[in-house]
């Protein structure tokens, strides 16, 4: 199961690098007008640790693994493997969902950290290329503006996202009825629903953190 994480690593990494560049570029183009380019560092650091890191990772994983979960379980329903588990007096949910859930709870925070790192480094690279800010200065500023609280809220989010992705994927799989075409449809539904729910949950979390004064 941990293979999920290792294989998703390049995709998450590249997405984060791109997003880091985008954020830095957008930030720089706006902030330059106020001559406040050094705030780009804050923008990238806080944006990634709180928001983009967990969210991008969750969307990447829901696309890769959410669909894979539902397809795997859906085909087990079609081939009567789920029925076989039940006749062996083994709870299919325990047997199939639990290990995936556990793996996702480990993998998503790890990927989120990697994603944060990639995004922030990409921001640094951009600053190095576009302005004359040295990489070491950038890193020092990053450390300065990075708050433990931000990193932790990001990781809490990623745990919630993991729960959503695994449960939506697996439940879509268990709901498969009929033939192989239903498996394909369930995979699509799993991605659509889990992406939607991830963003909804993110909104909820951000609102909670905002209202509880974390700013």
């Amino acid at each position: 199961m941990l293979v999920v994480g290792v294989e998703a690593f390049p995709m998450v990494g590249i997405m984060a690098v791109c997003a880091g560049f985008i954020l830095a570029m957008q930030g720089a183009s706006e902030l330059r007008r106020f001559g406040a380019t050094q705030f780009v560092v804050d923008l990238v650091t806080i944006g990634f640790t709180r928001e983009l890191g967990p969210l991008l990772t969750a969307i990447a994983v829901s696309g890769r693994s959410g669909s894979a979960f539902s397809a795997e379980i859906g085909s087990m329903v079609v081939t009567e493997e789920i029925d076989a588990l039940r006749t062996m007096a083994i709870d299919p949910v325990d047997f199939v969902l639990a290990p995936k859930f556990l793996a996702a709870l480990i993998v998503l925070p790890c990927l989120t950290i990697i994603s944060n790192a990639c995004g922030i480094l990409a921001g640094g690279l951009f600053m190095r290329l576009s302005t004359d800010m040295a990489f070491s200065v950038y890193l020092r500023d990053v450390v300065h503006s990075m708050a433990l609280r931000d990193v932790m809220t990001g990781l809490v989010k990623s745990l919630a996202f993991a729960t959503i992705i695994v449960h939506v994927g697996c439940l879509e799989g268990f709901r498969v009825h009929g033939g192989p075409d239903a498996v394909g449809r369930s995979a699509t539904a799993a991605v659509v629903k889990s992406t939607f729910l991830v963003i909804l949950a993110d909104l909820g979390f951000t609102a909670i953190f905002y209202l509880t004064g974390g700013k």
Partner: peptide
């Protein structure tokens, strides 16, 4: 259910495990 053994129309073996582990699964559980 533990006193019933069921062999399904299309075998319903778990492809992620070896044949041996498939047979051992109920014992392990």
């Amino acid at each position: 259910r533990r006193s019933m053994g069921v062999a399904f129309q299309n075998a319903a073996l778990f492809n992620s495990m070896s044949v041996e582990d498939n047979v051992a699964l109920p014992l392990r559980e």
